[in-house]
Amino acid sequence: MLGRQNYCVVVRPGTLTTFQDSGRPGMAHLGVPRSGALDVVNFRLANRLVGNETANAVLETTYDGVALYFSSSALVAVTGALADVRVNGRIAEWAMPLYVPRGGTLDVGTAKAGLRCYVAVAGGFQVQPVLGSRSRDVLSGLGPEPLTEGQIVEIGPNSTRRPVVDFAPYLPIYSSTLISVHPGPRRNWLSKRGEQDLFSQSFQVLPQSNRIGLRLGGQRIEGLFDEELASEAVAWGAVELLPSGEIVVFLADHPTTGGYPVVGVIDETSAGLCAQLRSGETVTFTRSRLWRGTID
């Protein structure tokens, strides 16, 4: 087919399935976000399970999975959100290497817990890189387009490396999540009451949340907006306080600058949890060891 020796065909693309790798770090000074897989641990694990380099491109699904037809036999793995995995209609293992025979179909179902699955194939998905990465950035539009029905995707040659691991323990994803927050560069823009409310309530994940950031609803956080803040650099995990008193936590596709105070930065160990939170679920912040003293 079209001269390709090893490829897959998208049977069902899902709501939003994108190619993701380790992203474009180190380019923020050019206005290019980092992007890349949101759940880095499960992205790397999926590649390890099939013997890939950990930075190979995978598929990142959103909620309702993906289905792929393979032209040749393939070794695949599905990690991240817990979902039913089927090969040719038969239930298969989650978070383990899977053999898909030539002409077979891999079907990743709707997430039962969590939000995003990671699908890796031995050899990696071969799509055109942009600025050195195959990641789709939903904010800037950089990188390959999201998957569409009938799309043909080339697969790289199988490595002779044996998978580093052959199974992975599952860490349950709970609907209520505690996240450690470090002080941000504009922590002093919080009032005393604002800091108290930031850490004494549970925030609900709003439907506007996406790969750019988590929009969180809850009791209004009081800030000290007595001056206008010029746009300044922001990073992954920045907790930005909006004039409305709402909170946004920036994720992989965040803008490189922002005009609202960054009052905190979440700990990087919470990246996977943020990637898997669904609309309507809750998150509670806790002060990290770096958060000391009170607001004067």
Rank of each mutant, 00 (worst) to 15 (best):
R34Y: 00
G51P: 06
G141R: 11
G258S: 12
S135D: 06
V50C: 08
D166T: 14
L147F: 10
T79S: 11
D296V: 09
S209C: 06
D267Y: 00
A113D: 12
L38V: 02
T61S: 12
A55P: 00
I247S: 07
G103H: 09
R186C: 10
R12Q: 14
V10I: 15
T110N: 06
N210S: 15
P169K: 07
I266F: 12
A235P: 00
V165R: 13
S22K: 08
V283H: 02
I91S: 14
N6A: 09
E246F: 00
P172M: 13
V32R: 01
R287M: 14
G141T: 09
P183E: 11
L38F: 01
T62G: 00
G114C: 12
P185Y: 01
Q196H: 14
P207H: 03
A57G: 05
P25Q: 02
M96I: 00
R292T: 15
N52V: 09
N56M: 10
P157C: 00
R193N: 12
L131V: 04
C274I: 03
Y118V: 07
A67F: 05
G223C: 11
S202L: 02
G114F: 06
S133K: 03
V249E: 07
R211G: 06
L229I: 15
L106H: 07
P163E: 10
G132V: 01
F203Y: 15
V262S: 06
P33C: 09
T105Y: 01
T148S: 14
L224D: 14
F199L: 13
N47F: 05
W94Y: 15
P33Q: 08
K192Q: 14
F70H: 03
